[in-house]
Amino acid sequence: MAEDIPVEDYPTEIEEYLTGFDTSLGSVNDVVKKLMASSKNEQKLDPLEQAKLDLMSAYAMNSLFWMYLVTQGINPKEHGIKQELERIRTHMNKVKEITDKKKAARLDKGAAGRFVRNALWQPDEHKDASEHTPRAKRASEHTPKAKHMRFK
């Protein structure tokens, strides 16, 4: 592309940028051709992944058109492409919300109930609180009873 334009038509300091742009444009062209060549039946994606792919493709194509308008001297902010990009972005956010909901932690109602029940547990009023601990129970089982011993 940059080779087609005579050198005297553009400043030499932007030649490197134009060459890079031409290379990038060729890469984008290759990817778009591959994407357009593959059919949806060949991809075998679940509906959510297919929606992501379709939205990404639509956004990429509309972004390329935005860039084309800029190269033609047309302000894309005053063109209908801006609304189209916003519409696609809105749908991308909806898909992101669905994906985030799938990743969100699930509430285990049984476990939550056990946590609450154990946090609110109180020992019986008539028993000594130390009797309820496993260590206190084991210690009392192995110590001799004081009433059988006489001290002088």
Rank of each mutant, 00 (worst) to 15 (best):
Ala129Asn: 06
Gln83Cys: 03
Ala2Lys: 11
Ser24Trp: 04
Ala136Phe: 09
Glu131Cys: 03
Val28Ile: 15
Met67Thr: 01
Arg150Glu: 05
Gln83Asp: 15
Ile81Gly: 01
Ala139Met: 14
Lys40Cys: 07
Pro76Ile: 00
Asp4Met: 12
Thr90Gln: 15
Arg87Ser: 09
Ala37Asp: 15
Leu64Val: 08
Glu84Asn: 08
Ser27Pro: 01
Glu15Ala: 13
Ala37Glu: 14
Arg150Gly: 01
Glu15Ser: 10
Ile88Ala: 01
Met36Cys: 04
Lys82Trp: 08
Glu3His: 07
Ser24Met: 07
Asn75Ser: 12
His91Gln: 09
Glu84Leu: 10
Tyr68Cys: 01
Val95Lys: 02
Met36Ala: 11
Thr90Glu: 11
Asp108Gly: 01
Asp9Gly: 00
Arg117Ala: 13
Pro47Ser: 10
Arg89Gly: 10
Pro134Tyr: 09
Met149His: 10
Leu45Thr: 13
Trp121Leu: 06
Met1Gly: 12
Lys52Pro: 00
Thr23Leu: 11
Tyr10Val: 06
Lys52Asn: 07
Glu84Lys: 15
Phe65Gly: 01
Asp46Tyr: 04
Lys101Arg: 10
Arg87Glu: 07
Tyr59Thr: 09
Asp22Met: 06
Asp124Leu: 12
Glu15Asn: 08
Arg106Ile: 11
Asp124Phe: 05
Gly110Trp: 00
Ala111Arg: 15
Lys152Arg: 05
Lys33Ser: 14
Gln83Ile: 04
His148Lys: 15
Pro47Tyr: 02
Pro123His: 13
Tyr17Thr: 03
Val70Ala: 11
Glu141Leu: 11
His79Ala: 04
Thr71Cys: 06
Lys101Ala: 08
Lys127Val: 07
Thr143His: 07
Tyr17Trp: 01
Lys101His: 05
Leu35Gly: 13
His148Tyr: 13
Asn29Asp: 15
Phe151Gln: 05
Ser39Lys: 13
Thr90Arg: 12
Leu85Asn: 06
Asp124Val: 03
Tyr17Arg: 04
Phe115Gly: 01
Glu49Lys: 15
Thr12Arg: 14
Gly73Phe: 07
Leu85Met: 09
Lys147Cys: 02
Thr133Leu: 13
Ala105Arg: 06
Asn62Ser: 03
His142Arg: 12
Thr71His: 02
Ile74Lys: 09
Ser140Ile: 10
Glu84Val: 12
Arg89Ile: 03
Val116Gln: 08
Leu64Thr: 03
Leu85Glu: 08
His91Val: 00
Ser63Cys: 04
Gln50Ala: 14
His132Tyr: 15
Ala139Lys: 14
Arg135Val: 06
Ala51His: 06
Ile81Thr: 02
Leu55Met: 12
Lys147Asn: 04
Ile5Lys: 10
Gly20His: 07
Lys34Asn: 08
Ser57Ala: 15
Gly20Leu: 08
Glu78Gly: 10
Asn41Ala: 12
